[in-house]
Nucleic acid binder design. Structure first.
Length: 209
DNA sequence: CCAGACGTTGTT
DNA sequence: GTCTGG
DNA sequence: CCAGACGTTGTT
DNA sequence: GTCTGG
């Protein structure tokens, strides 16, 4: 699964390698569900960055709430779900640029910070939604989970986020909606256990965050 | 028809 | 224990 | 995901 | 919003 992420030095990388600017980027670690995050979404044949809440909201729901756990979406249940199948049909596909994500192999202990080998940025695939308040759109999104690959198995035996690490894979998902890319990551990975609970290592930075 | 759900994780 | 807030 | 709350009464 | 359950 995927319940914490970091965005460090993703701006320069996505601009240089993908040609996608991130005007709302600022370096952040320990980003939590319900916080606002700059993500990439598809717009016709283009890709653009928007800021969206990490917790998907139904289009027509009365409130912008967090009633149901929609910060992750299981790839194996996309077709069964009202929310996910609806967003798929509307082609609301997104990628979240990250430098790492975190997993808690043991409850109450410090988490492992997980990277692509070499620690370059990569993308997490998902879906986004718009909810309107006085004609003003509020964006929100979810991150896909799928089965663990061999590296993740001992860290988290049930699930891992869908990782995309090349411009080709990003475009296949964002522009083509190719669901064949929604599989466990096949590249090399590395991880490091934090020296203390994550809130000690990376406390919230205040209201401006 | 209306009312109410709609989602995910983990339990070392 | 379970739900909410971030 | 984790951290933290979780309730009621009365009314100088 | 869209689908399910009653």
């Amino acid at each position: 699964m995927c319940g914490r992420i970091s965005q460090v030095e993703v701006d320069e990388y996505y601009h240089r390698v993908y040609g996608w600017p991130m005007p709302d980027y600022k370096p952040r670690r320990n980003i939590k569900p319900t916080q606002n995050v700059p993500i990439f979404i598809n717009e016709g044949r283009d890709v653009k960055e928007v800021v969206a809440r990490w917790w998907a909201q139904w289009d027509g729901s009365r409130e912008f709430n967090t009633k149901y756990a929609t910060f992750n979406a299981r790839v194996d249940r996309l077709d069964d779900s009202r929310l996910w199948s609806g967003l798929l049909k509307k082609e609301k596909r997104c990628v979240v640029p990250v430098s790492s994500f975190y997993e808690w192999p043991y409850k109450g202990k410090p988490p492992a910070e997980i990277f692509v080998k070499g620690r370059l940025p990569f993308g997490l695939a998902g879906l986004w939604s718009t909810w309107f308040e006085d004609d003003q759109p509020r964006y929100s999104f979810t991150i896909f989970t799928t089965g663990p690959n061999e590296f993740m198995q001992p860290i988290h035996p049930k699930a891992m986020p869908v990782m995309l690490d090349t411009p080709e894979l990003h475009k296949l998902w964002l522009l083509e909606g190719d669901r064949d890319v929604l599989i466990p990551y096949t590249g090399q990975m590395e991880s490091e256990t934090l020296p203390a609970p994550i809130e000690k290592v990376y406390p919230d930075e205040g209201p401006d965050e």
